[in-house]
Write a protein that binds this DNA or RNA. Structure first.
Lengths: 106, 106
DNA sequence: TTGACATGCAGGTATTTACCTGCATATTAG
DNA sequence: CTAATATGCAGGTAAATACCTGCATGTCAA
């Protein structure tokens, strides 16, 4: 998993919208997805290319159409590496800050 | 929670390293954090400002020092909004793609 | 008080990014 | 075959980003 590609892919509202659109209906064509975006088709293609590079979307060609499918695996990897780690220490991390704000003896 | 700020903050290796450094030892000063980065202090400050804007890091001034603390809450919010949603549909999403790859009747 | 130390602030630049337009290619329908 | 349709490819531009240098400010210790 390339965390950099995944986070950068997710760091754009258009690409997050594309994921939401695919979540509503998986396997949509480029044309279908474009109907819901207010930009040129070519721009949407570039966004989808980034999502595909991050392995968040997989595509299949069917004739002259290109179908897009969500791949949830990278999101799960992000969870394992970047959420659970901090989640586990959540209480103690907040505790550190609270102590500092209260100005404990030092 | 501002998903855009959080994902953009996470979309840079230096900032993810900063989070890891703070996870190892919470409450570090700017100077301490800089010792582990190969860039000018001013550049590190800019990265920390973005982490703070995304609410991933909180700071407290102590004399002439500035202490940095991780805030795990935005990461948890990301999980709720962007991981669990797709996780729930994980199996069915992969099913869709498998069907397409196998070229079921259509 | 004064010098050392920790950080803040103000620009400047090279790279990346998010758009666009214009044209090419490939597939299907009639 | 031919026209319509779906997508691919090749640039071009304005804005955002990630660095930097230089200097200012604030705090502590001797």
């Amino acid at each position: 998993m390339d965390a950099d590609k995944v986070f950068k892919a997710l760091g754009d509202p258009t690409r997050r919208k594309l994921l939401d659109l695919l979540c509503e209906q998986n396997g949509q064509t480029l044309g279908q997805l474009c109907e819901n975006l207010e930009m040129a088709r070519q721009s949407a293609t570039q966004h989808l290319d980034l999502l595909e590079a991050a392995n968040l979307v997989s595509t299949v060609k069917r004739g002259r159409e290109k179908l897009h499918f969500i791949n949830p695996v990278p999101l799960h990897d992000i969870y394992e590496r970047w959420v659970r780690k901090f989640e586990r220490q959540r209480l103690s991390l907040l505790h550190d800050l609270k102590q500092e704000l209260e100005g404990e003896d030092r």
